[in-house]
């Protein structure tokens, strides 16, 4: 197992957001988490990444590191990332003064350092990045611009996928990676995610819409409501939600 969330309860600013959430994820799987606004979808991603705003009041999260399940709460946010957890942000943050290439290079080598792998030289690294950028239709000059600075919504999301491909995590939580995308951008993002996924990693798609799931096929679909997973299933669940909304839950 890659990730095991057990009866997770968490709050932010004193408000209970997660009320006993459980979820198991194995390598090689694609999970979709759907649910109405405010159900706790984004909160789950942020708690897994270690956002300081959330207080976990109960439950645990285990994550597999070197074939052993470890308590995720013992790791700092950057250590979680170095151990292969990636969060694709719903609203990617602008970081003026730091170029995309700088961030990718520093991140990649921080991860390699933790994994005991030789860091890559800048020249060699640039080539790797350029290749992946080209695959995603990202122009080279974007790599040397401030991270997300002045990017459109679609460009920001595409940039998240570039990071995903370069950093190559084991567990990718993609939080509403489809929001604000036109159909062409959606196709590019989906192409990137499909290229990324393999039997050794897992993808969790947090989304409102079936549209994304037409391009990236999930193995499991979970419906999150009121801080808990109310029901799990396959694509049939998605079709039901599209037709009936969340009221039947």
């Amino acid at each position: 197992m890659l990730l095991n969330v057990k009866n997770l309860k968490a709050q932010i600013d004193g408000k209970q957001i997660l009320k006993g959430l459980s979820l198991q994820i194995n390598a090689g799987e694609v999970h979709a988490i759907m649910g109405p606004n405010g159900s706790g979808k984004s909160s789950l991603s942020k708690i897994i990444s270690g956002h300081a705003g959330y207080e976990v009041t109960e439950g645990e999260i285990e994550y597999e590191i070197n074939f052993k399940m470890k308590n995720l709460f013992e790791l700092e946010p950057h250590e979680r990332a170095q151990e292969g957890i990636f969060l694709g942000f719903q609203y990617p943050v602008e970081v003026p003064g730091v170029t995309n290439m700088m961030l990718l290079f520093e991140s990649y080598n921080a991860i390699m350092l933790r994994q005991g792998v030789e860091p890559m030289a800048q020249d060699e690294f640039n080539k790797v990045v350029q290749q992946k950028a080209e695959f995603l239709g990202i122009k080279e000059d974007y790599l040397y611009r401030g991270v997300n600075v002045g990017f459109s919504g679609g460009e920001k999301k595409r940039n998240e996928i570039l990071q995903l491909l370069v950093l190559n995590p084991r567990l990718a939580f993609l939080d509403e990676i489809d929001s604000g995308l036109d159909i062409d951008a959606l196709k590019v993002v989906s192409k990137g995610v499909n290229f990324f996924k393999n039997k050794n990693n897992a993808v969790v798609l947090v989304t409102h819409y079936q549209r994304l799931l037409d391009y990236i096929k999930p193995d499991f679909v979970h419906v999150l409501s009121d801080g808990q997973i109310k029901v799990s299933g396959g694509m049939e669940l998605v079709h039901k939600l599209e037709k009936q909304g969340y009221d039947w839950l």
Binding site: H78, A81, F89, V93
Partner: peptide
Amino acid sequence: QLFYLRSRGLDQEKAVSLLVNGF
């Protein structure tokens, strides 16, 4: 911003350093 950089594997110190050096 800091959380974003940390979620990319950079510790607090490195994250601040990147921001300031960039600036």
